[in-house]
Design a protein around this nucleic acid. Sequence first.
DNA 1: ACACAAATA
DNA 2: TACTTATTTGTGT
DNA 3: CGCCAGAAC
DNA 4: TACTGTTCTGGCG
Lengths: 318, 318
Amino acid sequence: MEGVDKEKVQRIIYEMSKGSKYFENEKRKEAFIKQKIESLRAQRAKLTEKDISHFQMIVNKRILELDGSRDLSKIWLHTDMDAFYAAVETLENPLLKGKPLAVGGMSMICTASYEARKYGVRAAMPGFIARKLCPELIFVPTNFGKYTYYSEKTRNVFSKYDPDYIATSLDEAYLEITEICKQRSISSEEVAAELRNTIYQETGLTCSVGVAPNRMLAKFEFQLVEIGYTDLIALYWNIPVCSDINKPNGQFILPNDRDAVMTFISSLPIRKVGGIGKVTEQILREVLGISTCTEILQKGALLHALFSHCSTGWYFRY
Amino acid sequence: MEGVDKEKVQRIIYEMSKGSKYFENEKRKEAFIKQKIESLRAQRAKLTEKDISHFQMIVNKRILELDGSRDLSKIWLHTDMDAFYAAVETLENPLLKGKPLAVGGMSMICTASYEARKYGVRAAMPGFIARKLCPELIFVPTNFGKYTYYSEKTRNVFSKYDPDYIATSLDEAYLEITEICKQRSISSEEVAAELRNTIYQETGLTCSVGVAPNRMLAKFEFQLVEIGYTDLIALYWNIPVCSDINKPNGQFILPNDRDAVMTFISSLPIRKVGGIGKVTEQILREVLGISTCTEILQKGALLHALFSHCSTGWYFRY
DNA sequence: ACACAAATA
DNA sequence: TACTTATTTGTGT
DNA sequence: CGCCAGAAC
DNA sequence: TACTGTTCTGGCG
Ligand SMILES: Nc1ncnc2c1ncn2[C@H]1C[C@H](O)[C@@H](COP(=O)(O)OP(=O)(O)OP(=O)(O)O)O1
Ligand SMILES: Nc1ncnc2c1ncn2[C@H]1C[C@H](O)[C@@H](COP(=O)(O)OP(=O)(O)OP(=O)(O)O)O1
Ligand SMILES: [Mg+2]
Ligand SMILES: [Mg+2]
Ligand SMILES: [Mg+2]
Ligand SMILES: [Mg+2]
């Protein structure tokens, strides 16, 4: 994000949190994770070369399998409204336009306008800290009803492009647009641009859109299909770019092409991958020195050795 | 309550509320009730003398019936902890003792210590108004777990006096002590005093206790029994009196005697009766000029004429 | 099968 | 004064 | 019966 | 900045 003084933000958050019950609890948790990391390090140290090459073989086979089963024949589109709750509030009270705005109260805020984000204000941040970061921050209490109302409006649009669209929250959904592209013989870029425009016409709200090829259809884990897309696509729209402006109100298209996918993925920090959060990131980094997706492939054997074999599922994503 | 400047309190509440969304909504409701009252007044004006004497007969019969079915053979005891949540918090952090204390946050407080009540601070009052009333007010967030814990402790005591005690909230319960009084041949006063003492020993918390005769056992409305007691008893402990000090940490005994009950009840403001709240009080007062329980009996015919015949149930209480 | 932690919006 | 809530998924017993 | 308002803690 | 959440009951269509 442009122009956020991360240094200062972190300092203020620390100053405000220090000593609180919440803070103490966080420290407790951190300690517990450190311990878990130590234990994993010990396990890794015990692995022999033989163990590793053994696992490497298993992993190689699994990767080949998955690579082969990759399905590039569908086109999936992901949409996510920009600063959704805040955008709705601004729409209903235009005086708020352009102002740093937080939705929520002094105890917790659910989201913040992009103006507020410049100050480091974020979703899931307590309001009283946010106000320290940005004293002129305006607070609006949350009105769940409104957001549902506008969410329905966007969904009406979605259903015109894919009647079976998959909504994953009030403000985002996945659409399979393979058919639409074929029928109207237009590119996915054009569909994306049109969709964004329609949504804006219908609701006055902007959204960001990502388009990507899909992944293997339910092999045994039927619902994992969707997850396969989720990850990829969620990433795409994290990248600014495309015909339009920068981050909010933008779109990004990844071609249905193996090389494009691999190139795109390989340099991604793992933290961006869906399902890898603060804790998992820390564990992978401090135990195996893994930070990017390429490294996941490189150290596949170690991962397979140290983590539950269900985590092999992580490989679903490339 | 001693030494509360009601004038000032009301003024401050008004100043703080004025203009808020909450306030506007209250006004809307008020208007609606006014309208209802008008409608009832009109109905009353239409009643002929004949109508009234007709209803009077029905009502007289009903009253006689209920008077006859009154059961004075049982002894019921009602307990209610003093400033429960606040007392628990004070117990766990003695620094708070003697200080004006509110349990809750700036948006809402659940209860206040008696010190705070002197300033007009009350349960169900938003914290930011309470703080205006009493700037040195200390806020403690609610810890439902703690209250449940201490509630269980009190209930252990209750069960020794009546294994079938009826708990109606974390901090109050009804006990049938007829048997205990007989078995140990002690008066209900003695049981009450002993119970209060035991609870204090076990928990360090004080409570107020009321004792009263009971009412007809389920005639057709099986569960109404309990309600019959509820009203009476809830009233008793509203009256300071008895061997001990004044309001908190006190007890009051009403003898099992028809005259005593009638005398006690007759002068009570109806608002004190369970089930009659702000709205019903206003309606009865502004439509029929009823303010005390005696007047309810006097105007029984009108009540019967104007209100749903199930409201006849109000007569259950005398 | 279940309770618990992690991740996400 | 004040650090959410609902939901889904994986892990370890 | 389901929905809403009033009441209570 | 900010006016609860839960449970029960009676009225009403
Ligand atoms: N941690 C949270 N707790 C509660 N509600 C949240 C949380 N995070 C997000 N929300 C709500 C408010 C958001 O407007 C809405 C959509 O989330 P999300 O798409 O992640 O952010 P956003 O739409 O506000 O901004 P943007 O997508 O532009 O980054 O869900
Ligand atoms: N309106 C309310 N909203 C939420 N919780 C409440 C409310 N009123 C009371 N409580 C909680 C907090 C109280 O400590 C507890 C018992 O209520 P109650 O007996 O009426 O008052 P109290 O025990 O705090 O004081 P006291 O009984 O001495 O008047 O229930
Ligand atoms: Mg969004
Ligand atoms: Mg979203
Ligand atoms: Mg009490
Ligand atoms: Mg009580």
